[in-house]
């Protein structure tokens, strides 16, 4: 049971998360407007936070990785706020050009 968990289940979950980020990455790279890109970036960051926790589980060091995932989530919030502030400031001009 433990073998299955370590050898198949956890790598499978990691693979699944990587595949999910592909969908978001498509939005970030091709998304017609800046807002699509921002939402895609948020999606990728949540996937990476989950990925960090799963990597921590795979390495038996979850306690350390939980701290990093928390810091990551906080920074992601700050980044999103900065982007939102920027779009509030000049979003109309950017959107008209895109």
């Amino acid at each position: 049971m433990m073998d299955f968990f370590q050898a198949t289940f956890i790598p499978g979950v990691m693979m699944g998360l990587a595949l999910l980020s592909t969908a978001y990455l498509y939005r970030v790279l091709c998304g017609p407007t800046v807002f699509d890109r921002m939402l895609g970036l948020n999606g990728i960051s949540t996937k990476v936070i989950l990925l960090l926790l799963v990597i921590g589980t795979a390495n038996d060091r979850v306690d350390m990785f939980v701290d990093i995932a928390l810091g990551y989530a906080l920074l992601n919030l700050v980044g999103s706020l900065a982007i939102a502030k920027y779009l509030e400031h000049q979003g109309d001009a950017i959107n008209a050009m895109d």
Partner: peptide, 21 residues
Amino acid sequence: NLISAVLVLACYSFLMAAVWA
């Protein structure tokens, strides 16, 4: 445009952090 470049660059950093981890 530059705002999109900033967003994609942030995305690159996220993925790179996952690679380091």
